[in-house]
């Protein structure tokens, strides 16, 4: 077993444990946004698509890389956009009487 593979396995196991630890504390209210956020993070496969496009040197390679880039782009951009839309809706205080006007605390304690 090569050093590279061992390093990768170490990284994978530790990341899994970090994932368990970070996620197990999220309240139910945020389960859907969280799933959507996790969903956008696996859009990182776009990096993989770019790298295989760079190493492709025949038609099969180009076709695979193209579809991979297409799928991954959809996953990553769509994922973040929809997560953002969802999170914008969570308000800190009761909405004002007139619907449509944003409460000052909208987006809640950002930055």
């Amino acid at each position: 077993m090569s050093t590279g593979l061992l390093t990768d396995l170490t990284i994978a196991v530790l990341s899994l444990l970090v994932g368990f630890e970070v996620i197990s504390k999220v309240p139910e209210t945020l389960h859907t946004p969280l799933m959507s956020a996790a969903n956008s993070i696996h859009g990182i496969v776009l990096v993989g698509a770019a790298l295989v496009a760079a190493s492709a040197h025949n038609t099969a390679g180009y076709v695979l890389a193209f579809v991979a880039a297409l799928f991954a782009g959809m996953n990553v951009v769509g994922g973040y956009a929809v997560t953002g839309r969802m999170l914008k809706m969570f308000k800190r205080r009761p909405a004002p009487k007139a619907p449509g006007t944003e409460p000052v605390s909208s987006g809640a304690a950002e930055a």
């Binding site: 990768d8 990341s15 696996h42 990182i44 993989g48």
Partner: peptide
Amino acid sequence: NSVLIIAGALVGASGGIL
């Protein structure tokens, strides 16, 4: 590629817990 491994494993764990 390490960043794919880390991000993928994070999502794998989070999805599993959920």
